[in-house]
């Protein structure tokens, strides 16, 4: 499973969404994710992939998160 597919799966599970409704270019605001939701997603991602993910202001979209994780792998 690719990083994007892992993120989409985790997001779909935690926010009760359909994976098909998630796209890489979607922003956290568009997905109605607040800072608490992003924190949860990052922690779940770290548990799933075993890779630390640093949150900073550049992290605004699913694609940003994918890039950050892939850089750490």
């Amino acid at each position: 499973m690719s990083t994007y597919e892992t993120i989409a799966k985790l997001l779909a599970e935690s926010k009760d969404m359909d994976v098909k409704d998630i796209r890489p270019d979607m922003g956290f605001a568009e997905l109605e994710l607040d800072s608490l939701d992003v924190a949860e997603l990052v922690m779940n991602l770290e548990d799933e992939l075993g890779v630390p993910v640093e949150i900073d202001e550049s992290l605004r979209t699913i694609a940003d998160l994918v890039a950050k994780v892939d850089k750490e792998k």
């Binding site: 800072s35 608490l36 924190a39 949860e40 990052v42 922690m43 640093e54 949150i55």
Partner: peptide, 12 residues
């Protein structure tokens, strides 16, 4: 913080 995830991130 209202969650363990937030707590871990701010600790970091």
């Amino acid at each position: 913080v209202p969650s363990t995830a937030m707590a871990k991130l701010v600790e970091r």
